[in-house]
Amino acid sequence: MSTAETPTEMPLCEQAPGENPICENPVEQFLRTDRMPHIWCPGCGIGTTVNCFARALLKTGLDLRKVVVVSGIGCTGRVAGYVKLDSFHTTHGRAIPFATGLKLANPELTVVVYSGDGDLTSIGGNHLIHAARRNLDLKVICVNNLTYSMTGGQAAATTPEDSITTTSPYGAFEPAMNIPHLVAAAGATFVARWTTFHVAQTMKAMQRMLTRRGFSFLEVISPCPTLYQRRNQMGDGLDTMKHYKEVSVSNNNANLAEIGMTKSGQITVGNFLEIERPDYLEAMRAQLRNRLQERYIEVGGAPCQN
């Protein structure tokens, strides 16, 4: 192919993209294309994060047979159903403990927890805290759209003050949970926040998480035009993306105590934290080997099968 052929190239792709390999979207191989189109609304950012995730996976070169995605319940919880990997769509709030069992029974697996803010921080908040404390080697991607979307836009722990939702019809007044601050305090060894506008940064953060060991947490602020932005007169998905562009301030050294989300104020983004400490499995193995010496039978790469 040469540039001279350009004029015929594009229409060919539009008409029958499958016929020319170059026209194939590189993310297709990660998707259950037989389930497309997905259920997410026009302007929803979840798909954008999945796009970033697929590209991050591609860049890491990880063996996709060993990458597992675990989701909870909610709009983001549906990610597990669209990625062409071993994938588990579990119960509301419990993706992390399910992932814990997967990882510990087969440490060879790269285990990604992909879920929403309501799922991970509210009903599943306790598991989030404890997985961070344990420094369990999980890659947790939390798409935060500031509301419960799947159930119709109710107030969440992450809903900024004064936001109108179906269960805060006169405006929310509880302070929104500052998730990066929480997980950092709980012991996470990688903490980042980006928005769906920051696709390249999001992808890079994901790439980093996939290739490092220990509890890694990424919050991606994402539009829910149908239920959150619309009720708060904040426009559609595109308007929200433009808003993110406008109000985001990148600061890797931000004081995490001060980056809580507000309705229309600044959004602090960045790769806030990356530290090294033994992950759960390392700590477990070291302790047991120390106490039991040669009597300890290490659970290694192979699953603990019988």
Partner: peptide, 19 residues
Amino acid sequence: MEDELAASIAIQGAVWAGA
């Protein structure tokens, strides 16, 4: 685990990992 909800699903993760 941190509670029984976690325990009762962690075992299921382990099952799907082969244990």
